[in-house]
């Protein structure tokens, strides 16, 4: 469905020196600085996948999304949507893609939501019957019916994002790109949005690529994660695989009746407080059940619990390892 090949993007920005001297100098000589935002990305996304595209601030996510949607021309490399090059065959490909930027709306401020939709219906030449059907589906998932008569400028952020989502789906694109769609939304709106993504993926088979800094989004939506940093791919795989690879351990929390704590050759004690001990162990070396039974054989146990490496922990590790150069 989407093929990204050896993608690079360099921004060229005019560099202005500090203070008055720098400003004056900039008038005569334009010092250019090159920012390497995306550095050789290569990946493939299959039809019907939901892919979470994550990375720290400034890692090149939005830049990549813009190149994948044909808004930005890559410095080199190519993006193929359904085998067609987005820069060379943009006019054909645009009918197959929809985009929502959480940070800025694509709806017309001055129009009522319904007018914006009608405008898109004309632009994409959507048949009236099909349009009404799609709108009904969107309404059933997002509940946008009561928003239709509202001018976009009067909408709250959550309402506007819903409007943007519905607008992006009107022409039934095969691929939906979402750049931080949940930014600034409350719990309820986030929930509605996740439900929306899951449902269009299930009902319409829409391929979804989303960037987010929200761990809940990642956990609930993304079967597959692509983690980038400094424009370079760090990890690509499904969540549990990545967890397995970069944090192949668990933590066993044991509460004893007194403060004399036993150790175990295959587990490392990472903290002791009062009578509670945390043992970190490799899944490959010992199972949790074996560890518990070994420990209870030496000393009576009051309570146990198992902690997986948290997703935020995983991401933190992924962001910091393998980083070749600093920001």
């Amino acid at each position: 469905m989407i093929q990204v090949k050896n993608l690079y993007k360099e921004y060229c920005v005019a560099q202005k020196g500090k203070g008055l001297g720098g400003t004056v100098k900039a008038l005569f000589k334009n010092e250019k600085k090159i920012i390497k935002a995306v550095n050789g990305l290569d990946f493939h996304v299959g039809s019907g996948e939901i892919v979470g595209f994550i990375g720290p601030n400034g890692s090149g996510k939005s830049t990549t999304i813009k190149m994948m949607t044909g808004i930005l021309t890559p410095t080199s490399g190519e993006v193929l949507i359904d085998g067609r090059d987005i820069t060379k065959q943009r006019k054909e490909v645009v009918n197959d893609i929809g985009v929502v930027f959480g940070q800025r709306t694509q709806l017309n401020w001055d129009l009522r939501l319904e007018e914006s939709f009608e405008l898109l219906r004309h632009i994409y030449r959507i048949d009236k019957k099909e349009y009404n059907e799609t709108l009904a589906v969107m309404d059933s998932i997002l509940g946008i019916h009561e928003l239709l008569n509202k001018p976009v400028r009067q909408m709250s952020l959550g309402q506007r994002v819903k409007g943007d989502l519905a607008a992006a789906m009107l022409h039934s694109p095969k691929v939906l790109f979402l750049d931080e769609p949940t930014i600034g939304l409350d719990v309820g709106s986030k929930f509605a949005l996740r439900k929306f993504i899951k449902e269009i993926n299930a009902i319409r088979g829409t391929t979804v690529i989303l960037t987010t800094h929200d761990l809940g989004d990642i956990q609930e939506l993304c079967e597959r994660l692509i983690i980038i940093n400094n424009g370079v791919m760090m990890e690509d795989g499904n969540l549990s695989e990545i967890v397995e690879r970069i944090a192949p351990y668990r933590t066993l929390v044991v509460e004893y009746y007194d403060s004399e704590v036993p150790s175990h050759p295959k587990a490392e004690i990472i903290s002791v407080s009062d009578n509670i001990v945390r043992y970190k162990f490799m899944k490959s070396e010992i199972t949790a059940a074996a560890l518990i039974s070994d420990l209870s054989a030496t000393k009576p146990i009051k309570d146990v619990g198992i902690e997986e490496a948290g997703i935020d922990e995983i991401i933190k590790i992924a962001y910091t390892t393998k980083t070749t150069d600093g920001n």
Partner: peptide, 13 residues
């Protein structure tokens, strides 16, 4: 200024 000139370009218009 608003950047809509770029996003308008991914529309068939």
């Amino acid at each position: 200024e608003k950047g809509s000139i770029a996003t308008d370009m991914m529309r068939p218009v």
